[in-house]
Design a protein around this nucleic acid. Structure first.
Length: 533
RNA sequence: GCAGGCGUGGUCUAGUCUGGUAUGACUAGGGGUUUCCAACCCCUCAACCUGGGUUCAAAUCCCGGCGCCUGCACCA
């Protein structure tokens, strides 16, 4: 199964196609069709079941466009706005800060000066003017010039910003996790390979917040999950998560926990174990915010494709927003409440005594640790404040810290593509997508053996009762029965129900199972309850 | 963004060198026949990526754009 073939099937069977095709297409954007939407929805439902229902994540649906200040704080605007230069002769393009030693720390102006003094390492010619490129799409919010805004480049920031709010929803308790499914946008320089590298894509992300002093442990039901790990030293091991954690291959229990969950989720939707591995980033590959990162990768005809990243982001994001915004993003560490005696100024007394100078005095002692006997300089004269001018108070304070976060981040579009490829089966006679019932786009194909003798009427009747019973069924009466099975197989429908003459006599139907082609005869009721997910 | 290759019905493709109103198959739709794994027969829908140029005439030759593939760069 190769890339071209998957693309052809996707177009033919209504899974996805390039967007804006009628106008020549636009690289990095695709449309999902009737079957693709259903497949995506089923993958999503399973993900929600694993993360929102089972793992108890608080779900968020954040806004897509954000203000400049947000991305200033998150680092997306400043640090990842790359300065690019082109060689005037050979047209090769370089990142300016990579050409100059220490370029990462230089200002744009200095970088430009430095670049003008050097020549192309490839051919020795001079460089063009420096241009900047940011991977975020920008827009304007509001009328006229408006305010600068950006489409979010990752769903994560919505969760980080909502952290104080979500923490209150969790009644102030850590650890907790938040989940979000939504679109993100990156103006990729060179999007390729259809759904694998897009400018608009869907992420399914979890941010699991915890205090470093109280990191969630690896629960027993996750310990026994088998996983293949390729660590930073390129050593590959297949073992249980418990063994890998105990053996020190995974250093964080929460990272281990999320590797296990990712493994369990991906195999549930139909990715085979042999095609799945988790690869640890080396230190040079690691993003600046991350202290440990594992990519879940699926082996395809295009090589290993990253479909999920599990990253330990430390407190990078929360502290960035804590500093960048006016809000408190820290939490009080339970059990660290301390009583301290502090002195606070008696403002009334100081005001009465010093009149106009009171303002200068209060300004001077603001933000300092107040003690009886401090001296303040008031227009050149030293004034000593004794205990008459202050009162002693008992203050209770906890230690304030930023929560740490472990983030599993899934790419839905990539998962769908890899799933199509990895579950593609062929035996020389027919080709089919061997999706598990969980992610098959329909629960059931309903087909009358032929469209006469009332078989089609009966089939319609069964179709209606299927829908009434919550079975998502697809009706097909066109062509030979074999042709209809083939059509159903190609989009991975798990069961096919055929209505024949015996159905009219005794109310039974044949139920065919996609992978084995085995048929059994059941009552309509039994058949429907069997195919319901 | 650079370099190379490519762009013909829904899909796969012939035709492009050598300019003359587009081939075939599959799929899909209608009809017939048959009825449990893409059977058969008849019919139908449906395409030269786009804009310009050369020419009496362009799918074909030339130039630009867009898209796809491969390599390089990029991918937080």
């Amino acid at each position: 199964m190769d890339f071209q073939k998957i693309i052809a099937v996707a177009t033919r069977r209504g899974i996805f196609q390039p967007a804006f095709d009628a106008y020549g297409g636009l690289a990095g954007f695709i449309d999902y069709g009737p079957v693709g939407v259903k497949m995506r929805r089923r993958i999503l439902e399973t993900w929600r079941k694993h993360y929102v229902i089972d793992a108890g994540c608080l779900e968020l649906d954040g806004a897509l466009i954000g203000p400049e200040a947000l991305f200033q704080a998150s680092g997306h605007l400043g640090e990842f706005d790359d300065a690019l230069v082109d060689c005037n002769d050979c047209n090769k393009q370089f990142r300016a800060d990579h050409l100059i030693e220490g370029g990462e720390e230089m200002s744009r102006k200095d970088l430009g000066m430095a670049i003008s003094k050097i020549t192309c390492p490839s051919c020795g010619s001079s460089f063009s003017e420096m241009t900047s490129f940011n991977l975020m799409f920008s827009t304007n919010v509001g009328a006229g010039k408006g305010l600068p805004g950006y489409l979010r480049p990752e769903t994560a920031q919505s969760i980080f910003l909502a952290f104080p709010w979500l923490l209150r929803q969790n009644r102030g308790k850590l650890p907790f996790a938040a989940a979000q499914v939504g679109r993100s946008f990156r103006n990729e320089i060179s999007p390729r390979q259809g759904p694998l590298r897009m400018r608009e894509f869907t992420q399914m992300e979890v941010e699991h917040f915890f205090l470093p002093s109280n990191e969630p442990t690896l629960p027993d039901d996750l310990r026994n999950i088998t996983i293949t790990l390729l660590d930073a030293s390129e050593k590959e091991t297949t073992s249980t998560i418990g063994e890998a954690f105990d053996g020190g291959i995974i250093s964080s229990s929460l990272v281990a926990c999320h590797l296990a969950r990712a493994q369990r989720f991906l195999t549930t939707i139909g990715v085979s174990n042999e095609k799945l591995r988790f690869r640890q980033h080396g230190s040079n590959e690691m993003a600046h915010y991350s202290s440990d990162c594992w990519d879940g990768e699926i082996n395809t005809s295009l090589g290993w494709v990253e479909v999920v990243g599990v990253a330990h982001r430390g407190d990078y994001d929360l502290s960035a927003h804590g500093k960048g915004s006016s809000r408190e993003f820290r939490v009080a560490v339970p059990g660290t409440e301390k009583e301290t005696e502090i002195w606070v100024p008696d403002i009334g007394k100081i005001g009465r005594e010093f009149k106009g100078d009171a303002k200068i005095i209060l300004e001077a002692i603001k933000d300092t640790e107040l003690k009886p006997g401090v001296t303040v300089d008031v227009n050149g004269t030293k004034v000593e404040l004794n205990s008459d001018y202050m009162v002693q108070k008992t203050e209770r304070r906890s230690e304030m810290v930023y929560a740490n976060v472990v983030e599993p981040s899934f790419g839905l579009d990539r998962i769908l593509y890899c799933l199509l490829e990895s579950s593609w089966k062929g035996d020389g006679e027919r080709e089919w997508i061997s999706l598990p019932q969980e992610t098959s786009p329909y629960d059931l194909l309903v087909a009358p053996l032929m469209t006469k003798d009332g078989l089609d009427d009966k089939a319609h009747e069964i179709m209606k009762s299927a829908i009434d019973n919550g079975v998502d069924a697809y009706y097909d009466e066109a062509g030979s029965i074999g042709r209809r099975y083939a059509r159903a197989d190609e989009i991975g429908i798990f069961f096919s129900m055929t209505v024949d003459h015996q159905t009219l006599e005794d109310g039974t139907v044949t139920l065919r199972e996609r992978d084995s082609k085995d048929q059994s005869r059941l009552s309509i009721k039994d058949a429907l309850s069997k195919v319901r997910r």
